[in-house]
Amino acid sequence: MNTGQKNSPEQYISDTVDLSVDLGGLRLKNPVTAASGTFGYGREYEPFADISRLGAVIVKGTTLKPTPGNPAPRIYETASGMLNSIGLENPGIEVFLDIHLPYLLERGVQVIANIAGNTFEDNETLGAMIRRQSGVAAIELNISCPNVEKGGMHFGTDPDMVFQVVNAVKKVTDLPVIPKLSPNVSDITIIAQAAQAGGADALSMINTLMGMAIDVKKRKPVLGNIFGGLSGPAIKPVALRMIYQVHKEIDIPILGGGGIMNVTDVLEFIMAGSSAVSIGTANFVQPGISVQLINELADYMVANNVAKISDLVGAAVYK
């Protein structure tokens, strides 16, 4: 008889190193999350990974009413990156709460809802609909989508608006509120400070960088929506720089991401000041990457005598 108990990867990890992090009152068992819009509602990735092992799944951005999204083509590959102009296509908050959320909760997934109201009032309404009672762990407030005419980035580039919308959502929900910041500003620290003053529990950064591509044969823009958001390894240096800058100026934790493809990238984001990381475009390339990175992060910690991953947060930041 085999007397040796076989441990699950999770047990193995928790016995040897501490991967858990605090994200503004939200406890994550490890710092790896799946970024909103790149992971659907989780189920699409179940054939490739045990999604319940993730620190959290940040689901597709939710509007109040169903949103059809932008005209095709919506995506285009660029050098080490991709442009997207999905336009927040989603079935609306009710379908999310009634169908997708229970599915994820039944599987033991920690869910962060991403809300993306078209108006100030929509964000308030959405915030009020998503409370602790619903089973959601936190709200990521999308004030940075570059692909919608109303709301989106419009909120995220004006410090007064950022303060007000964060403050309004904070008042109506009992969950941690994590605004997702737009990189399409000249000084991101001003926006970050406004979000913090508005009561943000943590900051998510960065959303995509606005860009475009031209079809030279047709002599017109490639994307149906003309502009799109650039993601992938191409934006990683920009994301790191912004997280580094913001970490120096604010006191709340950062959920960092932008082109993370491997464990070295994860470590760079943590050392630049991210308490947790979000994996986005990499999910499209390696559908099991997010869970794989948890294991690789644990391996790194064991090999480098890092007992707690939280000890590395901001390790490279000269304050």
């Binding site: 054939p47 083509p73 995506i75």
Partner: peptide
């Protein structure tokens, strides 16, 4: 159509 995820998550090949 141009595709990214291939599994119905990114909504790119719409």
């Amino acid at each position: 159509e141009y595709m990214a995820c291939g599994v119905g998550a990114c909504l790119g090949c719409a």
